[in-house]
């Protein structure tokens, strides 16, 4: 239990340390990250859809 608490506190500390991105969010960086989000949503969505198909088929 102590180890779990320590882990959670460590994760909180990491989140607070890296709260703000250090890289300057120029329009090129924003555009790249937005495109990456869209790409990941589309591919993960496809995977979930395939998983649902597999489960409903079996």
């Amino acid at each position: 239990m102590q180890a779990l608490r320590s882990l959670i506190s460590r994760i909180r500390e990491i989140n607070s340390r890296y709260r703000a991105p250090r890289i300057q969010m120029s329009s090129a960086v924003r555009l790249s990250l937005m495109a990456l989000r869209l790409y990941l949503f589309a591919l993960v969505g496809l995977m979930v859809y395939k998983f649902v198909l597999l489960v409903s088929g079996s």
Partner: peptide, 10 residues
């Protein structure tokens, strides 16, 4: 990545 883009992407 953590340092450059923050905790979410990290």
């Amino acid at each position: 990545i953590f340092d450059g883009f923050g905790a979410f992407w990290g």
